[in-house]
Design a protein around this nucleic acid. Structure first.
Lengths: 220, 220
DNA sequence: GTGATAACTAGACAGTGTCAACTTTGAGGC
DNA sequence: GCCTCAAAGTTGACACTGTCTAGTTATCAC
């Protein structure tokens, strides 16, 4: 709903900017909110969250220091906006992986673990932000962020339920709890990698292998 | 308790300073390095890493803004110093848990998981610092930090080896890899709790139960 | 056209980490 | 006991940061 309104707004804004001449005054940017999110994500991926400052962002986009405040309540809201898109991406990856019907359940389970950790590894700074306390602790998470993150969380529980039905895990176990352990595992491994404690990236496949083995040594 | 220890410590430090005359000049603090670490840890636990600034710390200790720079190269070095002590604590907890010979291996395994997550939960800000990218990424970790952290990491591998010998895990598996999965799991769950994504602390015991069950459903 | 209002700007303030230059102090060699 | 010197502590300064207030400009609805 907010998204659709946003899209309408962007469309209108672009029309307005291009209305007469392409060299229309730039006092109004036209699509500043989305541009800010894009450039901020770029800065994040390039040089880490520590280098993302509203002032640098603004100057990079070509607006004044305080312009972003008309689109985001504060810096936290901007960060939530970035994380939002991250969750949409991750959700998409999970959905794709679970759809592969030509491979066995066990392989799909491996794929989930592997793709998850790979996503974190390919987008370390984004992942750090998405699951960091900066945006989650102290109820600082935006409503929109929660709207984008919760379905992603829920999907992991749904997948676990599916795995139970297919015999990977005990059907009598509480799916939420099992999912919390599984997610904890991939999250923990991902974190240890991207935080620089596990350093040998070339071992990711092997580690995923072991994870699958430890969890499934009893099944099938 | 931390506070009382701090006060005792400061008292002793002051005693040393006042060795001869009680109104000895306070120009030299006497034990600024250790006091800084203690008070900084306090500030960290009280109100989070975001509230720990060198200037506030200095004023709280009663010295000038730049005094800490004579004992720590920069803020990062101070944070490493705090984390160092955290690792010593965690190592101690692990060692204690592994010594309980009157309970079964399986119970000791449960205790490891439980105590680990409990430690993180009791010291969320400290744990966050200890394993955060702030001090680990970009080779910013101090030599002293690594000296205190690596034995702690190694101990988890040693424990895993012990568990293998006792039949909890396949003896032929690579102990390092198994340990990486196990540690990943407890680390991930701990992080999800302290970062505010898993919110129901009352479920910690149950979650630990499930973790043990998932890993050990094949053994014994 | 005419408000109203959304979008944007500049100025200001209180923070931050850290560098350089200066002062005080205590310990060790004479 | 004095003198030196390095260690410990000081103030001033700089370049940053997020965010508030007040003012300006462009655009939309009427």
């Amino acid at each position: 709903m907010t998204l659709s309104r946003l899209l309408v707004y962007q469309f209108v804004a672009k029309l307005l900017v291009m209305k007469n001449t392409e060299e229309k005054s730039k006092y109004h940017h036209g699509d500043l909110r989305e541009t800010l999110l894009l450039v901020a994500t770029e800065m994040l991926q390039e040089s880490g969250i520590k280098e993302v400052s509203l002032r640098k962002l603004a100057s990079r986009v070509g607006v004044s220091r305080t312009a972003p405040y008309h689109h985001f309540k504060d810096k936290n809201a901007l960060l939530c906006g970035i994380a939002e898109k991250g969750f949409e991406q991750l959700h998409q990856i999970n959905k794709c992986g679970s759809k592969l019907e030509e491979i066995s359940v066990k392989e799909r389970f491996y794929r989930f673990i592997h793709d998850y950790i790979q996503f974190a590894n390919n987008n370390p700074e984004l992942y750090e932000l998405m699951f960091g306390r900066t945006i989650w602790k102290d109820k600082s998470s935006t409503l929109e962020l929660r709207d984008s993150a919760y379905p992603c969380f829920q999907f992991q529980v749904d997948m676990t339920q599916e795995w139970q039905k297919q015999g990977l895990f005990n059907i009598d176990d509480n799916a939420l709890r099992v999912s919390q352990i599984l997610w904890g595992t991939v999250h923990g491994i991902a974190k240890l990698f991207i935080d620089g404690i596990y350093t040998d990236n070339s071992k990711i496949d092997e580690i995923c292998d072991y994870a699958v083995r430890l969890f499934l040594s009893n099944s099938t």
